[in-house]
Design a binder for these strands. Structure first.
Lengths: 223, 223, 223, 223
DNA sequence: AATGAATGAGTTTTCATTCAT
DNA sequence: TATGAATGAAAACTCATTCAT
C-alpha cells in the first residue's frame, strides 16, 4: 500500500511545478528565487530539493513537462478524422486559442526559448525544441500533403516548406500578440487572419459570420 | 580642440556597448556580469560606471542604440524610389539578410523581448518596441497601399493587416531560423520563401534563376 | 515545544545586536562593516540578513532597543516612592552611574545623535529621541513640582524649564566626560556636582562624607 | 611678485574649506564625497589634492581652522574690560548666539566630536579639543575668580568646577537645541536660562524687559 | 520526509586617489 | 597648475544549496 504515498509525491511534484511555472513566468528564470517558488507551492525550501536536484533541474523538468503537455494536446487535435481543411482549421483554432492564454504563458515560453538560445550547441532545451518542432512540422506536412492529394489546397510552397512557414508565422503572431505590437489577438482579428491564411493556401474560406461583412473588413480589418 | 577628447569618449562608450552586446548575447542580461563586460571592453569596472549609470542603464542604452541603428537602416531601404514590388523586395531582402547575422544578434534580441515582456505595463522597452513596430507597420502599409493603387498587388488582407502579418512572419522566421527549428536560412530557402510571399500577396514573382527549377523546388524545397 | 527554537533565535538576535553595538561603537556606523559584525557575532554574513533587513535596520533596531532598555531602567528608578529630593538624588545617581559606562557606550550614543541630526525632518531617530526626552522631561518635571509643593525646592526656573536644563546638563556632562574634556567623572567630582546641583535647586544638600572636607572641596574640587 | 599667486592659492584653499564645511555638515564625513566638495568649490577633483593630501586631511584642516576661528572670536569677547558679570554676560551672549547658527553648524560639530571619539587615545582631534576646552575653562575660571574676588559671585562650586559645569551645560544646551529636544532656543527661553544661570552663580540678574513679567515666566517659562 | 536556519560565494556599485594631458 | 577620466579595492546584499533536527 504505497500508492497513496506515490500519489502524494506526484501531487507535491506537480504543485511545485505549477508554482515554478507561475514564478518563472512572473520573474524570469534568473530573477526567480527558490524561496518564492517554495512559498507559492506551500512547501519548505528543503522539500524543493527532495523533488528536484536544483533550480536548473526544476526549470528543465518544467520545460519538458510543458512541451509534453503541449504535444499531447496538439496530437489529439490533429488525430481527429476529417478533410485536410477541417484538420487545418482545427489546428489553427487551437493555436490561436493559445494566444489568448499567452498573457500568462508568453513570458515562460520566452524564457524557454532564451534558455535554449543560450545553451551550448545542442543542449537539452535546443534539442527538445528541435524535436518538438520537427514533429509539429511532420504533422502539418501530412495535412498539407493530404490537402494537395485531395485537391483541397493549391499550395504556394511545397507541403514541408508550407508547414515550416506556417509554424514560424504562428510563433511570430504569438510573440507580437503578447507584446501588443502589430497584432491584437481579438476574436475578429484572429478570424481575419485565419481566413487570409486559408486563402493563401489556395483554399477559399467560408464566408464570415453576419457581423463581419466580407468586403471591407476582410480587406483591411485595421485600416 | 576638444574633439579628440570627445572622440575618445565616444569610442570608449562604443567599445563598452560592443562588449556589453557580446556578453549579454552570450549570457543573457541576468547572468552577465559587469566584471566580464569591463574585461571584454578592456576597461576597469569603475570606468563602466563613468559611462553608464548602472548595469540596467547599459542594457537599456544598448537596446536603444540597436533599435535606432536598425531603424535608420530600414528607413534607408524603404526610402528608395521604385514600384511597390521593388520596395517590398528590398525590404524582404534586407530583413532576410539580417537573419544571417542572427547567430550573433539573436540571443540579444531575445533578451530585449524578454525584458520587454517582464516590464510593468508600458515600460521603456515595451514602449520603444511598440513605437518601432508601429513605424515599421506604417511603412509596410504604405508599400502595400501603393501596390494596391498601382494594381501590382491583389492582397489577401487589407494593407495594414497585411503589414502586421508580414512583420510577425518575419520575426517568426527569424526566431525559428536562429534556433535551427523548422527553417534554415540558406539563400535558396530564403529565395523560396520570398517568392511564396509575393505570390501570396497576389504578385506573380519572376522565375527563379536557372539552378532552381520552378516545379520541384518551389513546390517543396525541403521535402 | 517551540520555545527552544524561539529562545535560540532570540539569543542569536541578541548576539548580533551585541556584536553590532561593539562594532558601531568602535568604528561608527558608516565605517563599520557587516563582515566585521558577522565575524564578531560568530555568524555568517548571510545570517545577519536573516535577522535584520539591512545594515541600517540593524542599526535602527540597536538604537530602539538601547532606548527601550534605558527608559525601562529610568522608569524603575523614578517610580520608587520618596520625597522629591530622594527621587532626584536617585535619578542623579543613576545618570552619573551611566557615565562610567560611557567609555563603552559613548561613541555609540554619539552615532545615534549623529544619525538623528542627519535625518530628514522627523525621521525615526529624531522622533524617537524627541519622544524619549519628552517623557524624561515629564518625569523630571513631576519631581520638581512635587519638590515645590512640599517646599523642598526653591527653584531658579519653573519646573519644566528646570527639567530641560537639568537634562541638557546631564548630556553635556556625559559628552565632556567621555571626551576627557573639562570634567573627569570620578566619584568625588560627581558627588561635588551633585551637591552643587542640589544647592542650585534651592536644596541644601547633606554634608559630604568625612573624607571630603566641605570647605575647600565643595568650593573648588579641581583648583 | 608672487603674492597674487599666494593670495589666489589662499582663496582657493578657503573656497575648498568652505565647500567642505557645507558638504560635511550636510552629509557627514563618511557619506560626503570628494566629488561633491570639488563641485561645490567649483574646482576639479584633482585640484582638491593639490591643496589637501586626502579627504581625511581636508577634514582635519577644516576642524583645525574652525577651532582656531572659534577661539579667536571668544578670545575677543573675553578680552574686553569690565566687571566679571559683564564678561560673563558677554560670553553667555556669544555662546547662546551660536545656538541660532547651530542648525547649520551642529551637524559639523557633531562630526568633529564623533571623529574625536573614534580616535585612538590622544589623536589629533581629541588633543585639539582637549586643548581648546582647557583654554576655555581657564578663561572662564579667571572670570569666576574675578567675580569671587570682587564679591560679585557667590559660587555654588569652586571657580574651576563652575567653569567646567558651565561649559558642559553650554554644549548640552546646544546639543538639545539642535535636535529639538527639551529646549527650544528662542530669544525668550535663552533670556530665561541666562537669568537662571546668573542666579545659580549667586548673582541677582537685572529684571527682564517689560514684556516678560518676572513672576510667572521666570518661574516657569514653559509650564 | 519535511523543515528552515545557516552558509558564503558571487554581484553590483561607490569613491578616494592617481596621473597623463 | 588644473583637469577629469581611469582605477580597483572594498562593501552591502542575495540566494542556491546544505544539513541538523
Amino acid at each position: 500500500m504505497e500508492e497513496p504515498t506515490d500519489d502524494k509525491k506526484q501531487n507535491r511534484r506537480l504543485a511545485i511545478l505549477d508554482a515554478a511555472a507561475d514564478v518563472f513566468a512572473d520573474r524570469g528564470y534568473a530573477t526567480a528565487t527558490c524561496d518564492e517558488i517554495a512559498k507559492r507551492a506551500a512547501v519548505s525550501k528543503g522539500t524543493l530539493y527532495n523533488y528536484f536536484r536544483s533550480k536548473q533541474d526544476l526549470f528543465t523538468q518544467l520545460f519538458l513537462s510543458s512541451v509534453a503537455e503541449d504535444e499531447a494536446t496538439i496530437d489529439g487535435v490533429i488525430a481527429q478524422p476529417g478533410t485536410a481543411r477541417e484538420k487545418l482549421e482545427a489546428v489553427l483554432g487551437y493555436w490561436f486559442e493559445q494566444f489568448s492564454r499567452y498573457d500568462d504563458l508568453g513570458r515562460l515560453v520566452l524564457e524557454f526559448w532564451s534558455t535554449a538560445a543560450a545553451e551550448e550547441e545542442d543542449g537539452t532545451f535546443t534539442q527538445t525544441l528541435q524535436d518538438m518542432y520537427g514533429r509539429y512540422r511532420q504533422r502539418m506536412t501530412q495535412i498539407f500533403k493530404q490537402g494537395q492529394s485531395s485537391g483541397e489546397f493549391d499550395l504556394v510552397y511545397g507541403p514541408s516548406m508550407a508547414a515550416s512557414v506556417v509554424l514560424a508565422l504562428f510563433d511570430g503572431i504569438g510573440l507580437h500578440s503578447m507584446m501588443g505590437l502589430s497584432v491584437k489577438m481579438d476574436a475578429k482579428t484572429l478570424a481575419t487572419i485565419k481566413r487570409g491564411m486559408l486563402r493563401a493556401l489556395g483554399v477559399e474560406p467560408e464566408p464570415l459570420a453576419e457581423n463581419t461583412p466580407t468586403g471591407g473588413d476582410t480587406k483591411d480589418a485595421d485600416a
